[in-house]
Amino acid sequence: MRKTVIVMALSMASVFSVGIPAAWAFTCPILYEQCQQAIKQSKADAAVKQQVKQMCEDGIGLHKSGKHKESVEKLNEALGLLGKK
């Protein structure tokens, strides 16, 4: 019984560790589009908009290089500067 529980737990951990990065991969482009829209709609000053724009570009660059977790973090940080997340 104990062996079965351990095998099931390891199996579930394996499934989740594979699925999470895939979810991040699909999230990056959505967050990037949200960044672009937020910049257009923002009433922030030009310096803040430029900073956010650069962060968005950095975020999508991370996505393209396969660093999805870092991409999501960067894009969420950019949106946070405009009060969107």
Rank of each mutant, 00 (worst) to 15 (best):
M1L: 13
R2H: 12
R2M: 11
K3S: 14
T4S: 10
I6S: 12
I6A: 14
V7Q: 01
M8F: 04
M8C: 07
M8H: 09
A9L: 15
A9I: 15
A9P: 00
A9Q: 13
A9R: 13
A9S: 15
L10T: 10
S11D: 06
S14P: 05
F16I: 13
F16V: 10
F16C: 10
F16H: 03
S17K: 02
V18W: 13
V18C: 00
V18N: 07
G19C: 11
I20F: 15
I20P: 08
P21H: 12
A22K: 14
A22V: 11
A23C: 08
A23R: 10
A23E: 09
F26R: 14
F26V: 15
T27W: 00
T27Y: 02
I30M: 12
I30P: 02
I30D: 08
L31I: 02
L31G: 01
Y32F: 11
C35A: 05
Q36H: 07
Q36T: 09
Q37P: 04
A38T: 02
A38D: 09
I39F: 10
I39M: 12
K40M: 09
Q41H: 02
S42T: 10
S42H: 11
S42C: 09
K43P: 04
K43Q: 12
A44K: 11
A46C: 07
A46G: 05
A47F: 07
V48A: 12
V48C: 01
V48H: 07
K49H: 11
Q50M: 06
Q50R: 12
Q51E: 13
V52K: 08
K53W: 03
K53C: 00
K53S: 11
Q54D: 10
Q54F: 05
C56G: 02
E57W: 03
E57M: 00
D58T: 08
G59T: 02
G59Y: 06
G61K: 07
H63L: 01
H63P: 04
K64A: 05
S65N: 10
S65H: 04
G66D: 10
G66T: 06
K67N: 14
E70L: 07
S71K: 05
S71C: 05
S71A: 14
S71H: 04
S71N: 03
S71Y: 01
V72S: 07
K74I: 00
K74Q: 14
K74W: 05
L75D: 01
L75A: 05
N76Y: 01
N76G: 14
N76P: 02
N76V: 07
E77G: 10
G80T: 02
G80R: 04
L81E: 13
L82F: 00
K84P: 03
K84G: 04
K85Q: 01
